[in-house]
Amino acid sequence: MAIAPNADQEGGPRGAIMNVAMHLFGKQGFTGTSMRDIANAVGLLPGSLYAHIQSKEALLLSIVSDGIGRFLAAVGPLAAGSGTPAERLRKMIVAHVEVVADNPERSQVVFHQWRFLGEGNLPVAVDRRRQYESLFITVVEQGVSSGEMRSDIDLRIEVRTILGALNWTPEWFSPNGKLGAGEVGEHMANTLLRGILA
């Protein structure tokens, strides 16, 4: 199944359908959203949707794949960049929050609705999520090896704790809040790093 381009930038009816689906999946959940809901929100007959998309699941796969791709693109270069492991991990945490802040609704779908993909598409999302997790594992491993981070930590538990906290930010982050995404990211980095630094 082909992965759709960036849902935010895609134009025409398909772009409208993608954005409406993103909103409804975030608000009502994937299983709570019908093709009729999407069609009504876009102003099309339900049958007309299929001229632009393959299925409801294809929409979810496109949103999830595009969304994870954004996190990989923002965080991957930082993981492999310059600086100590702790400095890079801090930048990665901030970058993650900044991607969330760019579109919290999309991030909600990416983090909480991917499980509803069918068995044919679920491995695509799982593989992309593992790629992302491995960026954090590698940097923490480097921190442990250099002595900058504690050697008595369980790498996977610590990384999943960090990602678990980050992945819930779309539930409470407000683009109109007192603090910007970078500031929120710095606050989170201060808290999350404290538990693993030597």
Score class of each variant (00 low, 15 high):
M1S: 11
I3S: 06
A4I: 13
P5W: 04
P5D: 12
N6A: 04
D8G: 13
D8I: 13
D8L: 15
A16G: 08
N19P: 06
L24C: 02
L24T: 08
K27W: 03
K27I: 07
G29Y: 03
G29H: 00
F30G: 05
T31A: 14
T31L: 12
T33V: 04
D37Q: 10
N40W: 04
G43M: 04
P46S: 11
P46K: 14
G47M: 03
G47T: 00
A51V: 14
Q54A: 14
K56H: 08
K56R: 15
A58D: 04
L59W: 03
L59E: 01
I63D: 09
D66T: 10
G67A: 12
R70L: 11
R70G: 08
L72D: 13
L72Y: 02
A73C: 06
V75L: 08
P77D: 09
P77H: 01
A79G: 11
A80G: 05
G81I: 08
G81Q: 05
S82Q: 15
T84I: 07
P85S: 04
P85E: 05
E87A: 09
R90P: 10
K91T: 03
V94Q: 02
V94L: 05
V97S: 07
V97L: 09
V97I: 15
V97P: 04
V99T: 13
V99W: 07
P104F: 11
E105G: 11
R106N: 06
S107Q: 00
S107E: 02
Q108Y: 09
Q108D: 12
V110M: 04
F111M: 14
W114N: 10
W114G: 12
L117A: 05
N121A: 14
V124F: 09
A125D: 01
A125R: 02
D127K: 11
D127E: 14
R129K: 13
R130L: 09
R130T: 11
Y132W: 04
E133Y: 07
L135M: 03
V140M: 15
Q142F: 02
V144F: 09
S146V: 09
G147W: 00
G147T: 12
M149T: 06
D152K: 00
I153R: 01
I157Q: 08
I157M: 10
R160N: 15
T161C: 10
I162F: 01
I162C: 13
T169W: 04
E171R: 12
W172S: 08
S174G: 07
S174R: 12
P175I: 09
P175R: 05
L179G: 00
A181R: 03
V184M: 06
G185M: 03
H187T: 10
L193K: 01
R194M: 14
G195W: 05
L197Q: 15
